[in-house]
């Protein structure tokens, strides 16, 4: 399922003294099965854009097309509910949305809202909880007894159990320890490849963007500044500094060593790749 955004304009507090244009005539497409990153400095419109993609905010002008469904200024709640079945959203600090007595019930909440029967919902909840490595003998416990990282996993399972075709994740690693950070990012990548879903990641961490995503949409002041392959955009140092974004560590490292005469075959995406390429270069020289 593709998402087509056309001439999307979003204005907060429209027609009041506090009027603020968050998105300005933005047009872009998200294709099925790809891993996207939406980047830009704070206030560039990233959060507003992603909330439009599943109908949490409706456009002031323009429209968002999710498969056959169209989201416009006056779209009915019924249509929005349909869109939510297809487009899942993991908010920042998703563990804050947990509420039910047991882990299992909490994960079943989404699927039940989608109209599944108790049995189906339970089946799905168990499937995704075990996928995230939650032991099934634990799921009768209260989610509030768990650690922050564990709670986040439960919350993510709650979204995955709705089996969305498009998954939007907003700063999924904020406040996590380094180990959980890597685990969470790896998990999303695995899910994307295994179920062939689209992932749209919003983050400030350019290292994650560079390592995991296929394509990048760069936003600035509510406009689409540039879109394209991650490899092209995140190696463009001038573009990144112009928009107050960090250059990925590995890109900087590769540039630095190339100045010292180490000519790698291609740009590595992570540390492991860097080491492999470096070894190859050394072997070739020897």
């Amino acid at each position: 399922m593709n998402i087509e955004v056309s001439a999307l304009t979003s204005i907060y507090h429209h027609r009041t003294p506090f009027e603020h244009i968050a998105l300005d005539e933005l047009t872009t497409t998200f294709e099925q099965g790809k891993y996207y990153a939406v980047i830009g400095r704070t206030g560039s419109g990233k959060s507003t854009l992603i909330q439009h993609l599943n109908g949490l905010i409706l456009p002031t002008r323009g429209n968002v097309r999710v498969g056959d469904l169209v989201l416009k200024k006056k779209t009915k709640q019924k249509v929005i509910h349909q869109v939510k079945k297809h487009v899942g959203m993991v908010f920042q600090f998703p563990e804050h949305q947990l509420f039910d007595e047991t882990i299992l019930k909490d994960v079943m909440f989404g699927p039940l809202n989608m109209g599944l029967s108790q049995e189906e919902a339970k089946e799905r909840a168990e499937k995704y909880l075990s996928l995230l490595g939650v032991p099934l003998d634990q799921i009768g416990r209260s989610p509030f007894d768990l650690s922050g990282g564990q709670m986040r996993k439960i919350a993510i399972a709650g979204i995955l159990a709705m089996e969305p075709e498009v998954l939007i994740v907003d700063e999924p690693t904020a406040g996590l320890d380094p180990k959980s950070h890597i685990e969470t990012m790896k998990l999303f990548k695995e899910i994307q490849q295994e179920f062939n879903i689209t992932i749209i990641l919003v983050t400030h961490d350019m290292n994650d963007v560079f390592e995991y995503t296929d394509e990048v949409k760069l936003l600035g002041s509510g406009k689409l500044i540039k879109e394209g392959r991650t490899l092209d955009i995140l190696t463009d140092e001038k573009l990144l500094t112009d928009h107050y974004l960090e250059i990925p560590d590995i890109v900087r490292l590769a540039h630095d060593v190339s100045k010292k005469g180490v000519a790698l075959n291609r740009m590595p995406r992570n540390t492991d790749e860097f080491i492999t390429l470096y070894k190859k270069w050394r072997d070739e020289r020897a």
């Binding site: 909330q51 599943n54 949490l56 709640q77 019924k78 509910h81 939510k84 079945k85 899942g88 959203m89 908010f91 998703p94 804050h96 949305q97 909440f109 989404g110 809202n113 989608m114 709650g158 979204i159 709705m162």
Partner: peptide
């Protein structure tokens, strides 16, 4: 507001 958004993204329908 944040929690309302998060739960309605999970298909909760307190408006209808």
């Amino acid at each position: 507001e944040k929690i309302i958004k998060a739960q309605s993204a999970r298909g909760s329908t307190f408006m209808t």
